[in-house]
């Protein structure tokens, strides 16, 4: 799955969490920061991560991804970092089988 497709998926899930109307005012790119640019509340980021977990299943390890980051790093996360993590996880699964 390429980065553009994953970015589109995440943008759609963001709409579910914070509302499509709010997203109309923001262009979500790989460089968009969840907290700084989208003003996502911390609980909304959790909800987004929950949707991503449901969407991509066990192939994408969100627990390991977030466990390896400290509080400041999670708050500063950009959309592209999550897209890249998902893409690498899916590629690893694809190459295994």
């Amino acid at each position: 799955m390429d980065a553009d497709t994953i970015l589109a998926d995440i943008t759609q899930m963001l709409g579910q969490v914070i509302g499509e109307d709010y997203l109309l005012e923001v262009d979500v790119t790989m460089d968009t920061a969840f907290s700084g640019d989208l003003e996502l509340e911390s609980i909304e980021f959790v909800a987004l991560a929950g949707l991503m977990k449901e969407h991509y299943g066990a192939a994408v390890d969100f627990v390991g991804f977030l466990a390896g980051k400290d509080l400041h790093e999670i708050i500063a996360l950009r959309v592209g970092q999550v897209v890249d993590h998902i893409r690498l996880c899916l590629e690893a699964v694809g190459s295994r089988g």
């Binding site: 911390s42 959790v46 977030l66 509080l71 999670i74």
Partner: peptide, 25 residues
């Protein structure tokens, strides 16, 4: 407060270390 304070700090490392974690608001 809400579940995110634990989600951002202890819950994911705890699950990564081998626990079955439940958080709720």
């Amino acid at each position: 407060d809400n579940l995110s304070s634990f989600y951002y700090t202890l819950a994911n490392p705890c699950a990564a270390a081998g626990a079955d974690v439940m958080l709720y608001d």
